[in-house]
């Protein structure tokens, strides 16, 4: 069992290494992609500067705290796209029958399918995210927690992408749903949760779990709240488990399907 896991990790790491090598083929464009993404994120500073000139506290967040939130949004986005870019193209992979190639290999179909592509600009997001830790005020504790939540948040984003992508097993034209779903996660992630009320707020902690990927972790960092940290870890494991399950059920349907249109 341990051997199986070890071999799988070896495979996945090699796939990622090859993905990075591909992006590095053109070094200038790699570096400019990264730099522009950092600048891109930084340009949002202006918006927040203006908003905080009107009010010291927006949705319960101070300026520095919002920048930390923005940083975590960027780093979770970055981690999910940098290493698992193909998770966001899963419905396409399924629809075009590209899963077959992974099905004849003795490794995890899901892991292989989501690690075929690396996005270079996403590294800029990660760098920007961690830079915001210093803007907020560096301490080892904040840094380590930020790192932890970058991983959990990234995993949540990838899991959501897998669940949305797996819809392709069951529905036609699910690509539109999954694209929009993934976009929703991004749009909400950069704004403080305090500005949302009622149903929206409930949705943000359930159906569109931006709250679990971004808001709650930021609260946990600011308050250093152990309960919240543990809760985030548990919820993340659950969502990852759920994504695995949905994909598995979908794959079973794929293999026993008798729908021709899904395979052509």
């Amino acid at each position: 069992m341990l051997m199986v896991v070890k071999n799988q990790i070896r495979c996945t790491l090699l796939a990622l290494k090859y993905g990075i090598m591909k992006e590095m083929l053109n070094r200038t464009s790699f570096i400019s992609n990264v730099l522009f993404m950092i600048l891109n994120n930084a340009s949002m500073l202006i918006q927040w500067l203006v908003l905080y000139s009107l009010k010291d506290n927006i949705g319960g967040y101070s300026f520095k705290e919002v920048m930390l939130l923005w940083g975590l949004a960027a780093s979770t986005y970055g981690v999910s796209r940098a290493f698992f870019a193909s998770a966001f193209k899963l419905s396409d992979t399924i629809n075009k029958g590209k899963l077959d190639a992974f099905l004849v290999q003795p490794k995890s179909v899901l892991l292989n399918a989501i690690t075929t592509h690396v996005s270079s600009s996403a590294f800029g997001d990660i760098i920007f995210g961690f830079a915001m830790v210093f803007f907020y005020g560096f301490s080892l504790r904040v840094f380590l927690l930020f790192f932890l939540f970058t991983v959990t948040g990234g995993l949540i984003l990838v899991s959501i992408a897998i669940i949305l992508g797996s819809l392709a097993f069951f529905l036609e034209n699910s690509e539109i749903i999954s694209d929009n779903g993934n976009n929703l996660m991004v749009h909400f992630a950069t704004y403080p949760d305090g500005i949302f009320k009622g149903v929206t707020k409930i949705l943000l902690f359930t159906l569109v779990p931006v709250g679990l990927a971004n808001y709650l972790p930021i609260q946990a960092i600011i308050e250093f709240n152990i309960t919240k940290i543990v809760f985030v870890l548990l919820v993340t494991s659950f969502i990852v488990f759920l994504a695995n399950l949905v994909f598995k059920i979908g794959l079973k349907k794929y293999a026993s399907t008798n729908l021709m249109s899904a395979r052509v």
Binding site: N7, R10, A15, Y18, K22, D100, A101
Partner: peptide, 26 residues
Amino acid sequence: VFGQKEQLWMHLTPYDNFKFFSAIYD
């Protein structure tokens, strides 16, 4: 081998590809 579907990584050399498949098959 599916003639119409490529399993190889296009930007890598055949040698690197073979190494990748070696990893897949432990």
